[in-house]
Nucleic acid binder design. Sequence first.
DNA 1: TGGTGACCAATTTTT
DNA 2: TTGGTCACCA
Length: 718
Amino acid sequence: MSHALTAKLNPQQAAAVELPAEHALILAGAGSGKTSVLTSRIAWLLSTGQISPSGLLAVTFTNKSAKEMLSRITAMLPLNPRGLWVGTFHGLCNRMLRLHHRDAGLPEAFAILDQAEQLSAIKRVLKLLTLDDDQYPPRTVQQYINGHKENGRRAADVEAWDDYSRQLKLAYEEYEKQCNREGVADFSELLLRCYELLSYKPEIRAHYQQRFAHILVDEFQDTNRLQYAWLKLLAGQNSAIFAVGDDDQSIYAFRGANVGNMIDFQSDFLVKHVIRLEQNYRSHGNILDAANAVISHNTQRLGKELWTQASAGELIRVYEASSDFEEAQFIVEEAQALIRDGMAASEIAILYRSNAQSRIIEHALFSAGVAYRVYGGLRFFERQEIKHALAYLRLMANPSDDNALLRVINFPTRGIGARSVEAMVEKARLEGCSLWQAACMGAAGRGAAALGKFVSIIDAMRNQIAGLAMTDVVRVMLELSGLLAHYQKDKDGEERVANLEELVNAAATFISEDENNLIAFLSHASLEAGDHQAGEHEEALQLMTVHAAKGLEFNAVFLSGLEEGLFPHENSSKDQASVEEERRLMYVAITRARQRLYLTLAQSRMLHGQTRYGVASRFLDEIPQVLLKYLNRGYAPSSYSSAAPSSFNAAATAKPVAAPKKSTPEHGLAIGCKVEHPKFGLGVVTDHEGGATGNVQVNFAQHGSKWLAVAYAKLKVV
DNA sequence: TGGTGACCAATTTTT
DNA sequence: TTGGTCACCA
C-alpha cells in the first residue's frame, strides 16, 4: 500500500510522506506538489494503520482547500468525511466550541458574526459610548479589536497609556460585553475562545492532545500568532505536527500572518525533519528562473530554489504600453490571439496588483466581445436579501441576537422608524435586557402597534418551525417575514427572489450532508460565504488580483501594471519588510504561469482621476535580461500594433495577425452605440458589466434606462 | 423614509 | 475617476 501511495512521488515528496511520527516542516515551493504530499501523508498514515481517522486533524485556511483535501483523501480511501477533523481553523474551532459550548461560556445557539456584522456591532458600541466617528473610525476600532484578539489579548490584557488608547480599550471591553450578552462570536473570537477553552480546561485539552496524534497544517506561512498558539496547545506529548508552507509565498502579513511562525516552530518544537520540495511541476524553466531571480533579492528567507525537468520554454514577454488604455488593448488582442490558436480562455489569467486596475481591462474586453470573469465581489451569503433572510433565521435561533434584530425589525418596512428603535434600545439598556425582550414589553405611543406586529411575526415563525425540516423552516421564514413578497413586488427584485429560492435549495442540500439543524446551517452560512461569483466553470478569461491568484495556475498569465507605485505599491515601498512582501507577491504572480508569461506596464496611467507617469517596476529589473523578450523595444509606440501578437505555438514564427479591430465588438454593444430592442425600441448602450455573458445598460428613448442580459435580450445594433 | 447632492479617500482579504 | 458615507429634504 505504502508503495502505491509513494510511487508517483519524487524522492523528497516520498520522504515527507513517510516521515516518522515526529514534528516536521515541509518547505513546499510553488507548484511542487504540496497538496499531493499532504493528502498522501494522510492516506499513508491511515492505510498503514498508524492512526485511525479520529486521530487526525488537518487544518487549512480556506474552505476551498479543505474541501479539496477532503475529496482527495476520500478518493484514496473509503472514509466517512464527516468523521474526519479536516477543515479551516475557524471551522474546526467552531466545531470544538459547539461541542463544549458550556465550558467555553457560550450559549448553545451562539451566532457567528462575519466582518460586516462585526462592524455594525462595533458601530453600536461606539454609539453607546458616544465616541466620535472621526476620532474613532469603526474600521480602525475593528482592526484594533481583531489585532488584539489575534495576539491572544482580551480587553483586560490591553495596556492603555493615554486617553486615546484608554477609549479604545473601553470600546473593546464594551464590545466584549455586548457580544457575550447577545451570544455572538466574531471570527477571531472563534479562535481565541477555542484557545482559551483548551488552556483553561486541562481535561478537555488532555482529551484532544491524546486524540490527535497527527496534526497537519497547510499554508503554514499564513498562520497568525493565535493560530500558532492554538496549534501549540493542541499538540500534546505524543502528537506530531506536519507543517507545510512556503515562506516565499507569504503575502498576508497585512492581515496578521506571521512568517516568523515557521522559525519559531522549528525551535519551539525541536523540529528534526525539514524537507524542501523544490522540484516544480508547473512552469517552464525560464519562468522559474525569473521567479528565482526575483525572490533571491529578499534577505529574510529560509532558502529554496525551484527547478524543473521541463524545458526552458519561451522567453517572458515584456510589453511597455504608452498608456493604461493601450496596455489593456494589447492584453486583449494578445489574449484573443491565444484563444484563436486554441488555448482555452479559462487557461488565461490577467493579473493585477489592485482591483482598480480591472476596470480598464474589463472595458477593453467588453468592447472586443471577449468573455471574462472577475474574481472578487459579492458572494452568495453576502447578498443583501440573503443577509436579511439569515437575520430572521438567527433571530429565531437566538432572540437575544440584537444585531439580527436591528437588521430586520423594519425590513420589509413595517412602520418601525428610527425613533421607535431608539426608544427600544434605550429601554433595553435601562433594563439590561436584549432588544427582543424590550420589544416584547411593548412600546408607548404610536409605535406600539407596529412593534407588536413584529413581535407576533417572530413568535409565529418560532411556533411554526418546530419539527420542520430546514427547507421548510426557510420557506416559513420567507413567507411570514414578508421578505419574499417584498422582493416579488419590487420591479428589480427578480434576481433577489431567485437568490432567496436558492437559499431554500441551499437549506435542502445542507440537510443531506449534515444534521437537520438550524444552528448548524447558520454556522455554515457564516463560515462559508459561498462562491465568489456564479459561472465559475464557464469558458472565460480569468481576471483577478495577484493575491486571489495564489494557489491557482494557468497556461498563460498576463501580469499588468508593472510600475513603481503600483507594484510594488507605493504604500509598501517605504520599508524593507513591506518591499519584501511585495516581492513575494511578484514571486507568486510569476509562478502562476505554466507556459507563457507576459509582463506589461504603461508609461501613463489614470489614477485617482489624474494621469500619472510611472517608472518601470524594480521587479522588472530584477529579472535577468536574457529571460526577457521585449515585444516593443524602443518603445513609445503610438499604437501597439507595431508588435504583432505572437502565436502561442512557440516554435512557429509569429504568424501575421489581422489588423487590430478598433472598437468593433463582436456583439456590437460598445458603450455609446445605438441599439434596437423588439419591445423597448431604440436606445443607446450606456454601461456594461460581466463581459460578453453579462449585462448591458441601455437608455431607451421611450422606456428609460434598463439593464439587460446580453445573451437574452434581442438587441440589434442600428 | 427614501432619495439626492456634497464631500472625501483611494492596496492586498479569508474566515 | 470612482465609490462610499452622510447630512438634509420632500
